[in-house]
C-alpha cells in the first residue's frame, strides 16, 4: 500500500531533496511513523507532544486528498491506498 506524500521545500533536507516520497499507514499517525523510519527527524517537525498527547504542530498543515486533516480527525484521519497527502507549513507571522 502506497501513499504519496508531498514534502515542502523546508523539509526536503530529510528526504534527500525529494519533493514527494511514498509512505504507508492506515492512519496519519501511522504514516508519520513510517516516514520517520525512512526519513529520521521529520516526525519532530510535524507533531509535538502537548499534555502527554501527540498533536499536529499548530503551524503545519497536512491535507489528505485536498482536505485539511484538522477537519477529518487530525492525526487519527484514516488513509487508503492511493491517497495523496500534502504537507505545507503555514504561511503566517506577526
Amino acid at each position: 500500500m502506497a501513499i504519496e506524500v508531498r514534502i515542502p521545500t523546508i523539509l526536503r533536507t530529510y528526504t534527500g531533496g525529494e519533493k514527494a516520497v511514498d509512505g504507508t499507514g492506515a492512519t496519519l499517525t501511522a504514516l508519520i511513523d513510517d516516514l520517520e523510519a525512512n526519513h529520521p527527524g521529520i516526525k519532530e517537525r510535524l507533531v509535538e507532544t502537548k499534555n502527554d498527547k501527540l498533536e499536529l504542530r499548530r503551524f503545519v498543515n497536512i491535507y489528505v486528498n485536498d482536505e485539511d486533516v484538522r477537519f477529518i480527525g487530525s492525526l487519527e484521519a484514516t488513509l487508503n491506498d492511493g491517497d495523496q497527502v500534502v504537507v505545507l507549513p503555514a504561511v503566517a507571522g506577526g
Binding site: 498543515n61 491535507y63 485539511d68 500534502v86 505545507l88 503555514a90 504561511v91 506577526g94
Partner: peptide, 16 residues
Amino acid sequence: PTFYEFDSTELLALYR
C-alpha cells in the same frame, strides 16, 4: 493587526 495567516484551504489552492 498583529498577526497574519493564510487560510489553510486557500494555501493549498495557491500551492497547487
